[in-house]
Design a protein around this nucleic acid. Structure first.
Length: 433
DNA sequence: TCTGGGGTCCTAGGACCC
DNA sequence: TCTGGGGTCCTAGGACCC
């Protein structure tokens, strides 16, 4: 069966759009800082470690994604690149604005990531889809200041490819339809660029002579399934135009929440480590409460700097099962510190630590433990007040004592932009003279 | 001196049960 | 020689994503 025949088997020809914000973090930094227009901009990861977003001008300078900032310091200075620490409060807020704008323009959408959304355009003619995509792009730009690119195709995987193509050709919208056009594009797409094909699979496929996305769409189904599991098989079918990945409108309940950081300076003493772990535990607790869920298990991990092969290495984690599912900061801090004490060893320089909570259940369904319910009830009121204070006066205004005040472990964040849209004190001022 | 953070899904294999 | 078979649950590890 040719892929064309297979496509016809779909009762209704589906059509998906992928909307992707261009260089999202860099674009956010630009909105309130027009002086940065047409200038190279990069945004660094937490701890000012690696480059995680680049404006077009920065890409043109040859700055690669993920490159450590210290390796390109002279390049950044020489070209007057504007450098920012990541400001997730700002990006999260812009993301909400973009998504709200999209939601008002289409009947059904899936928020796929902070800067991407899939839209269902099934039933719309190719010309209609193209016009709608153009309108979406203009509206988002006008309402939020964020430029987006849009790829449209019969499956999500093909819509991703259409979106890449739009970027490559510096076109705002790319519509991919019709067997011949799709075949031609797939033949020009390296298999590693396909959504769902990462480094490992890319190497394996290339070694087997599967070089392009088209080759993968023609590979024997049995082989793909055996070597790449059903996930790989779905990707193969999607490349053939058979839609296997549906639009997921409802946000599935989280399964895990993680808070982890690299330290600005490596830490050897137990004190600062405990303060860091306690802080991560309270951040997990706050995220749990915001999502109205509670955790049944917690994992605490610490490790040394793996890049420093000249130093002794150590990495351990410890899982604690909580007697009753909880989102109480005080109980979670207690558990986290206990876990840390069990795995901490002196004589190492720790670079990173984190807390992961799992086994999440809805807050309302928690079975109260007979022996601790009185304590839990008291704490609940306290947590509500804590969240309210921190919401009003900024994160970490009220803390659990174990979090400490030295913050020796804190992030390096030397180039943070203001919280233009999320902190009253950072609101932009305009002087009319 | 400096190298991110937060998620998901799938499978194989072991433990355990009847 | 040859040691049941089938089901469920859990975990670790490997792959991927942005």
């Amino acid at each position: 069966m040719s892929s064309g025949d297979a496509r016809k088997k779909n009762a209704v020809e589906k059509l998906f759009a992928l909307v992707d914000c261009n260089n999202f973090y860099a674009s956010c930094e630009r909105v309130f800082n027009p002086a940065l227009r047409h200038k190279p901009v990069v945004v660094l990861s937490n701890n000012d470690g690696c480059v995680i977003a680049r404006s077009e001008e920065a890409k043109a300078l040859g700055i690669r994604m993920g490159v450590p900032a210290f390796e390109i310091e002279s390049l950044l200075t020489a070209h007057g690149v504007a450098v920012f620490s990541s400001n997730y409060a700002l990006y999260g807020d812009f993301s909400s604005r973009v998504m709200a704008t999209l939601a008002a323009l289409v009947p059904s959408m899936e928020i796929y990531s902070i800067d991407e959304a899939f839209l269902d355009l099934t039933g719309i003619s190719p010309e209609g889809a193209e016009a709608l995509a153009q309108r979406i792009r203009k509206t988002v730009l006008k309402h939020t200041g964020i430029p987006v690119g849009i790829g449209v195709a019969p499956t999500k995987t093909l819509a991703k490819i259409a979106n890449h193509l739009a970027k490559k050709n510096k076109m705002p919208v790319c519509l991919l339809k019709g067997e011949e056009e799709i075949t031609e594009v797939l033949q020009q797409t390296p298999v590693g660029e396909v959504w769902g094909i990462g480094r490992q699979y890319s190497a394996k496929l290339t070694a087997r002579g599967i070089i392009t996305a088209y080759d993968l769409s023609r590979a024997p189904e049995e082989w793909v399934r055996r070597e790449m599991t059903v996930t790989g098989l779905r990707t193969r079918q999607e490349l053939c135009g058979i839609s296997c990945l549906a639009l997921e409108e409802a946000v599935p309940a989280r399964q895990a929440i993680c808070t982890s950081r690299s330290f600005g300076k490596p830490q050897g003493e137990p004190g600062p480590l405990e303060e860091a772990i306690a802080t991560f535990a309270t951040m997990c607790a706050a995220k749990l409460r915001r999502g109205k869920s509670a955790a049944t298990q917690m994992m605490v991990f610490i490790h040394t700097n793996a890049f420093r092969t000249d130093q002794p290495q150590y990495a351990r984690n410890r899982v604690i099962t909580l007697a009753t599912p909880t989102n109480d900061s005080i109980l979670l801090v207690k558990a986290a510190v206990e876990a840390l004490r069990a795995i901490y060893r002196p004589g190492y320089l720790y670079k990173k630590a984190g807390v992961i909570v799992t086994g999440l259940v809805p807050e309302g369904e928690v079975q109260q433990d007979l022996f601790s319910s009185a304590e839990t009830g008291k704490h609940r009121k306290l947590m509500e007040s804590l969240d309210e204070v921190n919401r009003r006066y900024g994160r970490q205004t009220l803390q659990v004592a174990t979090q400490g005040t030295t913050r020796k472990w804190r992030l390096r964040q030397e180039k943070l932009s203001p919280g233009y849209t999320t902190r009253w004190s950072d609101l932009m001022e305009i002087r009319l003279t």
